[in-house]
C-alpha cells in the first residue's frame, strides 16, 4: 500500500486516504478536435512498466488533486507536485534521470 506526500498539506498519506485519478499531463481535446486527437485524449494511455506520472486526490484529507512521479515496477516514488503544473518540476526530472538513466522522457 503506497504512501504519497500531498504537496499541498504535507501529509504523508497512505493509499486508503487517497483516490486515484489515472494518467497525468493529458491535454483536453474538445469540440473542433479530430477523431484521432479525441481518441488519444479519451482512451490512449501509456501504462508504462517503469516511470509513470499519475493523478491522485487527497480525498480523505485536504481534497486537493496532485500529481506523482512513480515507478510502476518498483513503486519507487520520485516526487509529488501540484496539479497545476503542466510538466513535472525540473528536480523531479533530474532525479528520475539519475535513477533511471534509460528513461526516454515524458513524451
Amino acid at each position: 500500500m503506497l504512501i504519497l506526500e500531498c504537496p499541498y498539506c504535507g501529509v504523508k498519506a497512505e493509499e486508503t486516504e487517497l483516490a486515484p485519478g489515472y494518467e497525468a499531463h493529458l491535454k483536453r481535446y474538445g469540440p473542433g478536435s479530430t477523431d484521432e486527437e479525441f481518441e488519444a485524449y479519451m482512451f490512449a494511455r501509456k501504462n508504462p512498466k517503469g516511470v509513470h506520472f499519475e493523478r491522485w486526490r487527497h480525498a480523505y484529507g485536504c481534497g486537493k488533486w496532485f500529481l506523482a512521479a512513480r515507478c510502476t515496477a518498483t513503486l519507487e516514488v520520485f516526487g509529488t507536485y501540484p496539479a497545476q503544473l503542466s510538466a513535472p518540476p525540473a528536480e523531479i526530472i533530474a532525479k528520475i534521470k539519475a535513477k533511471r538513466p534509460d528513461w526516454k522522457g515524458l513524451k
Binding site: G21, R28, R55, A59, K64, A83
Partner: peptide, 13 residues
C-alpha cells in the same frame, strides 16, 4: 462534487 473540484483544480485553475 469531486468532478467539479477536478476540473477547477486541474484544468481551469
Amino acid at each position: 462534487h469531486g468532478w467539479m473540484e477536478d476540473w477547477l483544480q486541474c484544468e481551469w485553475w
